[in-house]
Write a protein that binds this DNA or RNA. Sequence first.
DNA 1: GTCTATAGCAGGATAGAC
DNA 2: GTCTATCCTGCTATAGAC
Lengths: 187, 187
Amino acid sequence: MAYPSKLTPEAIVEAASGLLRAGGAEAVGMRALASTLGVQPSSLYRHFADRAAVLAVLEDQTSLELNAALTRATAGLPPADALRAAGHAYLEFARSQPHAYGLLLMPRAPYTAQPGAGQDLWKSVLALVGAVTGQADDTAATVAFWAYLHGFATLELSGQFGRSGPRGGFERGLEALVMGLSHKDTP
Amino acid sequence: MAYPSKLTPEAIVEAASGLLRAGGAEAVGMRALASTLGVQPSSLYRHFADRAAVLAVLEDQTSLELNAALTRATAGLPPADALRAAGHAYLEFARSQPHAYGLLLMPRAPYTAQPGAGQDLWKSVLALVGAVTGQADDTAATVAFWAYLHGFATLELSGQFGRSGPRGGFERGLEALVMGLSHKDTP
DNA sequence: GTCTATAGCAGGATAGAC
DNA sequence: GTCTATCCTGCTATAGAC
């Protein structure tokens, strides 16, 4: 209840992050944000041009966190194991921060090369997959792997699996992909 | 410009479907819908209880269409080929009707057994996958297959692939999954 | 069964006082 | 740099006349 009484960009982002985690991107409104900070909505515009600017920061932040989680999970593992670990870490991230993950993968203007944090994430996955397929910059394989992870995460988060549960489904597909994408050097 | 001047549920749904295809679920508003039909918004409430009722009909309709597309594409094919064809038909549907597809896979309350059209769609895919894995009601394999298709479709539709394009990525993962999920009877 | 009119709510963003 | 006070726009839904 004690307000710092000093509004900084960092404090705003932190409060916005809390709203995002709690209620998704649509819960990050200028009114709610101001209310959380004990401030009037108009005060926020001294620090951020508009709502989109706030969301952009949250998106970059989330991208960095996911990238860090993947790097942490795969450190020191042989290629195939690293890919499996990355899959699990990816799903774990989506489960623990569903709304933030949702923000990360929001529809964007097609053919818009997103600069910044998103690129690093892509490069990380590209390297992981490339180590398994034995081919650098293997876009096709990376896209396939990413699609599976994203699809599973979103289907689960949106409740499509129902109470029947996907038990075993994730492992099943992950294994099929790791095997199917692996480079066979000794047939 | 010539208005039928007679409002029927069918006409409303048809107009709503047009709005959905053009601008997504959020474009299906009572105002826009009434405007399209040359009618006042309040008139719609004589035929539908509220906006949610309209969207529910659109969702069921879309589910039926997708199911029909998959059935059409896989008719008479051997299991593995049928699964490949289903994958292509699924992606094709998502590409040709992105907004309708998005409505179909919208977040819903978890553990809510959705009755009706959605169940049939699931059963169709379950049968296709089961024929390949050699195991009836193979939930795990079906979930994996579905996750891949949904993930690829949504990543592509949301523009995540950028201009680099996923060329070959879809085939790569689809093949890996069909192979990986296939039942080996003669090793 | 359609109309006019309006209630009610929520959201982003701005002007100008202090 | 924060405040008060609005403005504007968008939406769903209802009341009551015709």
